[in-house]
Amino acid sequence: MKALDIDRRIIFIFVFLGVAIPLMVDFTLPIKPTPPVIAAYDAFEKVAAEKPGSTILLSFSYGASTAPEMQPMARAVLRHCFRLGFKVVAICLWPDGVGLAESVLAEVAEEMGKKEDVDYAFLGYKPGTIAVILNMGQDLHTAFPVDSKGVSLAQLPVTKNIHPLTDFSFVFDFAAGDSIEFWWIPYGQEKYRFPFAGGCTAVMAPDLFPFLQSGQMLGMLGGLAGAAEYETLIGHPGQATEGMRPQSVTHLIIIAFIILGNGMYFLSRRSSGQATG
């Protein structure tokens, strides 16, 4: 029964090896997109077919602490958006998301040959969360008079004709906190009824499934797995797909430890029962 008193640092070592070795050894695991991710992909495709060349809004509501999950997701969605020919307007409702949003926009725009102010615009961070969303619902130019470089939105080709939120053909939020559940859905989608989908950290995903079922969200990407599934759908494997190898191996290690721990527990109960009985 010494296994029940196993030093937790041994488990940490196994978990680390379960992460490190698959990253260094190249092997392929199948990634099967799930219905919520397929629904998000299909929603983008449908909007692109119905309103080609329209403008969509991407909201970056995450920070550096969740970048490993959210940056690959943002890259995949941005690649898809640019490939479909959307004009992209990006905002931040989290202060520490500004640098991350700027870097992913610049990286993917350069890769896809897109020009700032013409194909996309980054408006920066604005505090106020729900006040910003309500303000944008009436007029984007009031909520964000200038972009992140101080240029008036009325002068940018991407934003000069966009006023209320309903002028966007689609809104997508990258959420590390409760921005989808408590900001965008009640004060945005439910009030102004625009097509809305989101990507979130895996921790948040279970809380958002009710909104998928009710149709308030058209699709959802949950965590690194959701990002990997989206990369599979767009045919551009990246960091998320690479991360699913250690993810899968480490999950198996954790399952093995859970089975071992429970097995040892029941054996110890039986042996202590035999000892007293």
Binding site: V19, P68, E69, A202, G223, Q239, G243, Q247, H251
Partner: peptide, 12 residues
């Protein structure tokens, strides 16, 4: 899965 994703990011 979320916590492992963060560990994977740092390990990468």
């Amino acid at each position: 899965m979320a916590r492992l994703s963060l560990l994977i990011g740092r390990t990468q």
